[in-house]
Nucleic acid binder design. Structure first.
Lengths: 214, 214
DNA sequence: CCGCGTCTTAATCAGTTGATTGAATCGTCA
DNA sequence: TGACGATTCAATCAACTGATTAAGACGCGG
């Protein structure tokens, strides 16, 4: 698991960055309640006091992890987000966004796990993190979708579409035993990953089609 | 939250059943690590000793909850599962299964939360529960899909299709703050639920279409 | 060399956790 | 009445939790 992280991003230099990266891994695999500060510190080869030196509490560290994750997602998606003066075709934009999202999640296996975890947590107290970082990028895309007036985008509910895409990509990259059983292998195996990636990208135009019965 | 449960199934009579139902709610909203046996017992208005009288440990209770949930899902889906001598059209079967699944999850809000939680947990130790209860029903459907040789099902990867359906339905019914923000309301509001339900059912034939670029 | 930010060490705090004990109580069925 | 399963009660156990304290050590720029 350490190797996957190294491949995805540069090894953290400072102690603070190393704790943050380790906390991301532990929180992703065990959740907030399942992970203990002592375990995180131990996994990062760092004293617990160092952890509390940089962050006020476990909760602070937890949301620092998410802040960091969201920043990286937005950065990864920045190139694919449509600009006001945009020449690419809709299909190009959407397929590229889907592909980028998929590749990023595949290269950073902790991210889909964390996002899915956050999706189930229901304390609305800390919704700010998503609101401030993720929502703006999301809104750009939704506005762009709505403004495209000719088929095949017209008549499609932008909200439902994007939640579907978001959800499907997320789900396929949570490498659970259930998915491994059904798919007959890990999504992080090269061959299978390519197949799933192709499937998901080809899924987008299908979803965007008008319903025949509507 | 208690009212939704009452609507979905009859109020549990025995103490054991009441503990099980309460544990399902608490585990669904707080997860295994986040829930304490004391809290479950208190919520069920029962002494902790009663809990340990019926179940050996917290973990035993946890998987008893899942055993129960899986049984109910299979039972709810039983009527929609295609029989060997089946006269209904493919579209009918699939749309009915999708609708049934959606309605059951909507009426039992704890279920999608639990399933999604279980999807992230990565200790493969207790995969047996799913293997024994859920996998058989799943296999019936997959075999049936594969055996349907004429379009529009031919050429579609049954595994990827079913995981997609499974995932999308699950995700839409986890009533997270994120989804509430994006959708502008709870999925458990009647009007919105109807819209999402229609969208999802109409999604199925789209997904099943052959890719134009394939 | 001094000072400052970083980090370590070790000890300790009160609270919660899952689990167990042994005795007492309740209802019901024979 | 008696026996038995179900349930309660109060107390206790060791282990772990997040967090804090105070003292010291390291390295680096001024």
């Amino acid at each position: 698991m350490r190797s996957a992280l190294k491949k995805a991003r540069a090894a953290p230099t400072s102690t603070k960055a190393r704790i943050l990266a380790t906390a991301e891994e532990v929180f992703a695999s065990k959740g907030f309640d399942g992970a203990s500060t002592r375990e995180i510190a131990a996994a990062a080869a760092v004293n617990i006091s160092s952890l509390h030196y940089h962050w006020e509490s476990k909760e602070t560290l937890y949301f620092a992890v998410f802040q960091n994750v969201y920043d990286r997602i937005v950065e990864a998606l920045r190139g694919t987000l449509p600009q006001p003066s945009e020449s690419r075709s809709r299909h190009e934009v959407i397929e590229q966004a889907m592909g980028t999202l998929f590749d990023y999640f595949a290269a950073n296996p902790t991210v889909p796990k964390l996002l899915l975890r956050r999706l189930i947590e229901n304390e609305s107290g800390h919704a700010d993190v998503e609101q401030q970082v993720l929502a703006p990028a999301w809104r750009v895309f939704a506005d762009w979708m709505r403004s495209a007036s000719d088929p095949p985008l017209a008549g499609i509910d932008a909200h439902l579409f994007m939640l579907t895409v978001e959800g499907v990509v997320l789900l396929y990259l949570v490498d659970s035993h259930h998915f491994r059983t059904v798919l007959g292998g890990s999504v992080h195996d090269t061959a299978l990953r390519r197949r799933v990636r192709k499937y998901l990208i080809e899924l987008v135009p299908k979803i965007l089609q008008r319903s025949r019965t509507a």
